[in-house]
Amino acid sequence: MHLDLQNEVVLISGSTGGIGTALCEAFLEEDAIVVPLYRNPEKYEILHQRLLSKGFRDDRIFAQNVDLGSNLSIDSMVRNVKKRFGKIDVLVNNAGASFERPFLLLEEKDWQKGIDVNLNNTARLLRSVLKLMFIARKGAVVNISSLLSHRYGRGVTVYAASKAAVDRLTQALALEVGLKGIRINAVCPGVIDTHMAEPLMERYGDKIKQHSALGRIGQPEEVAKAVLFLSSGKAASFITGHLLTIDGGQGI
């Protein structure tokens, strides 16, 4: 099935991480126009060189350095994208961060940072991007949540709580904007082979694999494929407010 994502303008936050990189590649393979959002120019340069080395055309990539903690920075980026392409078809809210610490050792600033990065920044970006989608009466959003939003979570309470909030944001917002032609879904990856999962794998790698129905952890590309599907107005036209777990059975 063709996903009909050619020439769709796709914003991807957290583009330089493991899943972000896979997302950029997956959308470029579909001949979409990818707008990787990044904060660290050095990390973006690594991503950029990787994309070029894989043969992707530079004119299909319109990277933007954005501070997701700033409305001004986000609005400026959205203006740049609007000026260049006149539209935003897909937003993938992929930026996020996790760190492990027992709840009772968390300081107020740690908690606030977790909520800011995983929830508030997602909401901030949505508020700005949805404007263009409202006007276009068309759009798809995929929020990258986590298996931890509804399972496990010992030692990562703020991450689990903020991702649970992202799930509910996804569903409640889907109800608000559906009549405007905008679909909002989330994917909930289990343990995926990225830098973020390295500390977890070092300590519990074998246990996690044993606990998975498929006997392994996931690859970033496997998350990206699900995001492509949900982003496609052709393939997922009647799917909104859905939380799709991608965990190889780790959460069963």
Partner: peptide, 9 residues
Amino acid sequence: IDLVDILYS
């Protein structure tokens, strides 16, 4: 929601 739409426009 219509008001949001109107304000955006």
